[in-house]
């Protein structure tokens, strides 16, 4: 997993609630058996005017000039600002893969769907929950000021605006530790091999039909 300490990045505002994982990465791109290369198809149906299929070169395709990420001022954005319930729908990890592959390092929203939120931590993409009021303020400031950047510090659990205002966010201590150190979660779990085996034995004795 990629480490995450802090990041100073340009913010792109995607002013919509309930953005689902079908919108983040449409299903035709899930046919890939690889883990990389999804960035060019992030928000495919909103980003391009033509219908995208796997294998198409994004350079040859017609961009939707109205889509926020296509505006020159948001090129190179590393922080995505969105509304409530971001990432709802399917469990596809391809959604966080696509966001990360595109270049995003953190997503700020008032709330996230559970599976998406969880998937982000597994790959080192930081989902940040801020108060709807603070998110509103960020939307206003981003839209008003070109080149608007914030500093995200995982260590301090803060998002700092260009004006020096810092918004604090919560993060589970275990997840924070894993992200700061880029730890392999499977490796960590395997440190408990003895406990897993002991549990399994007890479980088998209690419910032998599960092991038949």
């Amino acid at each position: 997993m990629e480490k995450f300490h802090s990041c100073k990045g340009l913010v792109a505002p995607l002013d919509r609630a309930n953005i689902d994982t079908d919108a983040i990465i449409p299903k035709q791109f899930l046919k890939s058996i690889k883990r990389s290369g999804f960035g060019q198809n992030l928000f495919d149906e909103w980003r391009y005017l033509d219908h995208g299929e796997p294998g198409m070169s994004s350079g040859q395709r017609k961009l939707n000039p109205d889509f926020i990420l296509n505006l020159p001022r948001y090129r190179g954005a590393q922080i995505l600002l969105a509304r409530a319930n971001f990432g709802c729908g399917s469990s596809r990890e391809h959604a966080p893969w696509a966001l990360q592959d595109y270049g995003f390092r953190a997503i700020i929203a008032p709330s996230f769907a559970d599976i998406f939120f969880n998937n982000c931590f597994k790959i080192g993409l930081l989902p940040i929950v801020l108060d709807a009021k603070n998110v509103d303020q960020l939307f206003r400031e981003v839209q008003a000021e070109e080149g608007y950047c914030v500093v995200v510090s995982l260590e301090d659990q803060s998002v700092t605006t260009p004006g020096g205002e810092a918004f604090l966010f919560e993060v589970d201590p275990f997840r924070k530790h894993s992200l700061l150190n880029g730890l392999d979660e499977i490796g960590l779990t395997l440190q408990h091999v003895g406990e897993i085996k002991a549990f399994e034995e007890k479980h088998r004795a209690a419910q032998p039909w599960l092991f038949a």
């Binding site: 599976i115 998937n119 597994k122 979660e185 395997l190």
Partner: peptide
């Protein structure tokens, strides 16, 4: 679950 967790369950 997501794909990282699929791998996690497979392994552990």
């Amino acid at each position: 679950i997501g794909t990282s967790e699929v791998e996690h369950v497979l392994a552990t």
